[in-house]
Design a binder for these strands. Structure first.
Length: 479
RNA sequence: CGGGGUGUGGCUCAGUUUGGCUAGAGCACCUGGUUUGGGACCAGGGGGUCGCAGGUUCGAAUCCUGUCACCCCGACCA
């Protein structure tokens, strides 16, 4: 069977309408539901379980770098939010306010956190006294609220789940090092666990975080050629420290300001998983994050011994810590295959009378639909092997897609042509003026995604204005 | 916030133009039976004051006024 044959009518094909495909997959894979609250979504078990896996695996990596988890309040007093000018201006348009407690009007309104820089700064100003108190490496897993005008499942909603790391350091160098280190933790996690290759780089001033000295980003390329900002890491310098009075006494007994960082990824990563790996049959999850790694599907399960054998297989897989379930509902096998595929289960094991007679079972990969016949006694080791191969094949495929969707533009005509006709990232030189960024966005809807770490000069003039070029920039349409 | 669209069983929708008997279909659900290697079939069954509030009328899902909600496309943002 052709691997991209469309098997499920309810999913619109990607070619036909990518946006609709995305919504269909999200619904058919039962990842989320819309709620009665405007712009807010419900994570269903299958979607939340992906987040739990991301959380668990990322959290381990954070802790390896010395980070500790904390939890701060979800409310921020208005006066605290006001302390850093750029920061308030950046977030004010999208914060939700609490004005009443019960029947009584509050003396001071509280904002529902859109991000927690101000609370962390307030905390650090109290607990940091000496250089011996540094660094502080805190992180929290929580939800934040941003009153968005438009919403899309996992990509943008009024409330979303994320983690925000906030660190305070004695020196500028140490803060910069931490900023880059966490960006690399993200990029590595995305590649190794989510099988999503990232373009790493620095944001232009226009695109950087409100209040940051510099913002670094990991940008992924979706199947339709649009970019998705998947994680950011900010170096705040001492800007927040000065606004919040976070000072410590150094070894020479001199008062110094701390240097801070913050970094975050959100449930948007689930959106990336869907749009990087999914196909017309639904979701396709890399084994390492899949809530269910193997579904066992009995064929002719009413026949003697079939269910018993299927359950034996389940047990042997579970014994090896492979996340396994069985579909022993009385649906037809075809139904079960489609269902498992929509949910993105990496491998399925088929077991029927014919197999049992031969002492075999059939293992089918979700990404290629390739079938492997395997002795029942070897199923666990074969499953492990296939999951490993699948994990790296999926990354290789996504890498090939990324690399084949990067084009160079040497002048404005080429640039405009690329935006129109070559979905993906466009590499082009830039003079450093925000005006050119604005003009490019106005003319083409493409934005600067990042200035990659590996800089090279592909031309000496700015692609937009023709003035001397300063930076190589990755441009693209973005979510 | 601008432009467009939609509200009718759990879901997708028909019916609204031109008001008229008991508001329909497919899917899903429940019961029983036959099935099962790529979304099986038969029989029976339950479930809707047509988004909400007024109004017109002998009579409103359908016409009028108001209102609310959500979706999509832009601008703003993770």
């Amino acid at each position: 069977m052709a691997k991209d044959k469309k098997l499920v009518e309810e999913i619109t094909s990607m070619e036909e309408d990518f946006t609709k495909w995305y919504t269909d997959v999200v619904k058919k894979a039962e990842l989320m539901d819309y709620s009665s609250v405007k712009g807010c979504m419900i994570f269903k078990p299958n979607g939340y379980a992906i987040w739990e896996n991301i959380q668990r695996l990322l959290d381990e990596r954070f802790k390896e770098t010395g980070v500790q988890n904390v939890y701060l309040p979800m409310f921020i007093p208005e006066s605290l939010l006001q302390k850093e000018k750029d920061h308030v201006e950046g977030f004010a348009p999208e914060v939700a306010w609490v004005t009443h407690g019960g029947m009584e009007k509050l003396q001071e309104r509280l904002c529902v956190r859109p991000t927690s820089e101000t609370l962390f700064c307030d905390l650090y100003s109290n607990i940091v006294q000496s250089y011996r108190d540094l660094p502080k490496l805190y992180n929290q897993w929580c939800s934040v609220v941003r009153w968005e005008k438009t919403t899309r499942p996992f990509l943008r909603s009024s409330e979303f789940l994320w983690q925000e790391g906030h660190t305070a350091h004695a020196t500028e160098e140490e803060a910069e090092e931490r900023t880059i280190r966490m960006l690399n933790v993200y990029a590595d996690f995305c590649e190794q666990v989510l099988a999503i290759p990232m373009v790493k780089g620095k944001k232009t001033d226009k695109e950087k975080f409100a209040g940051a000295k510099s913002t670094y980003t990991i940008e992924a390329l979706m199947h339709d050629g649009k970019a998705l900002q998947s994680g950011t890491s900010h170096n705040f310098g001492d800007g927040f420290a000065k606004a919040f009075g976070i000072q410590y006494t150094d070894k020479e007994n001199k008062l110094q300001y701390v240097h801070q960082t913050s970094w975050g990824v959100s449930t948007r990563l689930i959106g990336a998983l869907i749009m990087v790996h999914g196909d017309d049959s639904g979701l396709c999850l890399p084994p390492l994050v899949a809530p269910v790694q193997v579904t066992v599907i009995p064929i002719q399960q009413a026949k003697d011994g079939v269910l018993d054998k299927a359950n034996e297989i389940v047990d042997s897989l579970k014994a090896e810590k492979i996340r396994t379930n069985i579909d022993d509902s009385d649906k037809s096998p075809g139904w079960k295959f489609s269902e498992a595929e929509m949910r993105g289960v990496p491998l399925r094991v088929e077991i029927g009378p014919k197999d049992i007679e031969a002492g075999n079972c059939v293992i089918v990969r979700r990404d290629t639909r390739e079938k492997t016949i395997c002795p029942i006694s070897d199923v666990a080791s074969k499953v492990k092997e296939l999951m490993g191969i699948m994990q790296s094949d999926m990354l290789a495929k996504a890498k090939a897609h990324l690399e084949s969707h990067i084009s160079d533009a040497h002048n404005y005509e080429e640039f405009k042509d690329a935006v129109e006709n070559k979905p993906g990232f466009i590499r082009a030189m830039w003079c450093g003026d925000e005006e050119c960024e604005l003009k490019i966005k106005e003319d083409t809807t493409a934005t600067s995604r990042c200035m990659p770490f590996e800089q090279e000069s592909i031309d000496d003039k700015c692609v937009c204005c023709g003035k001397p070029a300063k930076k190589l920039v990755f441009w693209g349409k973005a979510y």
